[in-house]
């Protein structure tokens, strides 16, 4: 099995490591970097609990090898809040009760972040389709949709203000 020297920027910080070819990106993030906000929920690319952003796009980090992310910019839930300020999505999830057990939440947040970057003003239907790669067992999704709507509005207000 080949070993590889990789450098991945995670939440803006470069991390270098020597990894086995088969190390899954999600394990690199969780075990090597101790960023345990990214979760694992299935083996079939079905649940989205492991969703991170790679170069700004939401992907399932259990279906990618760490070596593939060499040189990439990875964003995880731990990097969302800036300067002690929650991201509008985090705020929305809190305000609107968009989470219960919290296990799917980091993946949902990352998916929603990518969704809003492509479509800043999504309809309810577009939100539902946009997060359809992420399973939640607790919330019934209503309040996740509301949370994303809250964030979309807030982000647009911030844009106008800027």
């Amino acid at each position: 099995m080949s070993k590889h020297s990789i450098t991945i920027s995670v939440n803006g910080t470069d991390h270098s490591a020597e990894v086995d070819s088969r190390l899954l990106l999600v394990h690199f993030i969780r075990e090597n970097l101790d960023l345990t906000g990214t979760h694992i929920g299935c083996d079939t690319t079905s649940c989205g609990a492991c969703t991170v952003l790679i170069n700004g796009r939401a992907v399932k980090s259990c279906t990618m090898f760490a070596v593939q992310a060499n040189g990439a910019e990875v964003d995880t839930v731990e990097g969302m809040a800036e300067g002690g300020q929650l991201h509008p999505l985090q705020e929305g999830f809190w305000e609107k009760h968009g989470l219960q057990c919290g296990y799917c939440t980091p993946g949902m947040l990352m998916s929603a972040k990518h969704l809003l970057s492509k479509n800043p003003n999504p309809t309810e239907d577009e939100i539902r389709w946009g997060i359809s790669g992420n399973l939640c067992r607790c919330t019934g999704y209503n309040k996740i949709v509301e949370a994303i709507q809250y964030a979309a509005e807030k982000l647009q207000q911030e844009e106008v203000a800027a």
Partner: peptide, 9 residues
């Protein structure tokens, strides 16, 4: 095709 996250890769 699949779901939106899968389609990103």
């Amino acid at each position: 095709i699949a779901d939106p996250l899968v389609r990103n890769l």
